[in-house]
Design a protein around this nucleic acid. Structure first.
Lengths: 143, 143
DNA sequence: CTGATATCGTCAGTCTCTCTGACTAATGTC
DNA sequence: GACATTAGTCAGAGAGACTGACGATATCAG
């Protein structure tokens, strides 16, 4: 059957998300939700402003604030004043968040390896390359 | 920057969904939500059982029932008894739903054409082909 | 054929996520 | 210095998802 390209993209995305989520839960990081994770993974190395996170995740700043509150309570992030703007605060990755990152990265690597094994390394590379190119016209917030 | 493959998949998926949603809204189909659409697009030609829709969309049957209720009230679907099982009812596409399908299909075709223009027809074909192959190991509910 | 078990769908209650609108405080602009 | 803009919060509402319990029907084992 021939599915539209949108759904074809969604299916493996959801599979990846579910695997990473399950892997983190198995490692003890079971006190956060997918919505929180989608914000968390967009935090820049030196910290990000709430408004920037909201824009990148394409949610309102209120929603982003709600999710960051929860991440903060669970110890994954912390908020610090922004030295360049007294109105703003930087959301930074805290110790628990930093510890979770390699766990998530390992699962991502594992799933990507499975996909590469199924597709063959060449097609996997083509896939990533095509998706990266597609980002140029579909991602308004390229980092 | 090198993003993980999950996020690379998600970005164009979201772009496609937003475009289709906006296109339908512009054509007067503005009384439904993305969640409803995700269920709607999984209805089989002859109708689908609620439980099957829930499985394919990976939500609970309660959630699926909630969404189908709304789609039914808005005239996009209708429920009919399942002749093969008196416990079940078939969710079928109603007239308003059938009328919306070509509108959505036109937007999908438009976006796919833009992507093909950006990637070149060959890479676009490779992309779809790789995604279809990936479905074999990431979609538990292939139709 | 009958009783136990499974499946289809609904009802009820709850929680998470997201939104809109209104607001304060700080910044930037003219 | 007046005014508009930007960063973030507070308050309220609604959508969408979940768990648990349930009635009705189907299926299967004996």
């Amino acid at each position: 059957m021939e599915l539209n390209t949108g759904l074809l993209l969604f299916i493996p995305y959801r599979a990846m998300e579910a695997r990473v989520f399950a892997g983190l839960a198995a490692a003890g990081y079971d006190d956060f939700t997918p919505a929180q994770a989608r914000v968390f993974q967009r935090i820049a190395p030196g910290g990000s402003r709430l408004t920037d996170l909201a824009e990148q995740a394409q949610i309102t700043k209120q929603s982003a604030g709600f999710l960051v509150d929860q991440l903060e309570r669970a110890g994954y992030v912390e908020r610090a004043p922004d030295p360049t703007d007294a109105r703003a605060r930087l959301v930074k990755i805290a110790s628990r968040g930093a510890a979770a990152i390699p766990v998530a990265a390992a699962v991502v690597a594992e799933v990507e390896a499975e996909w590469a094994a199924h597709l063959g390394p060449e097609r996997m590379e083509q896939l990533r390359e095509a998706l990266t190119a597609l980002r140029e016209i579909t991602d308004p917030y390229q980092r």
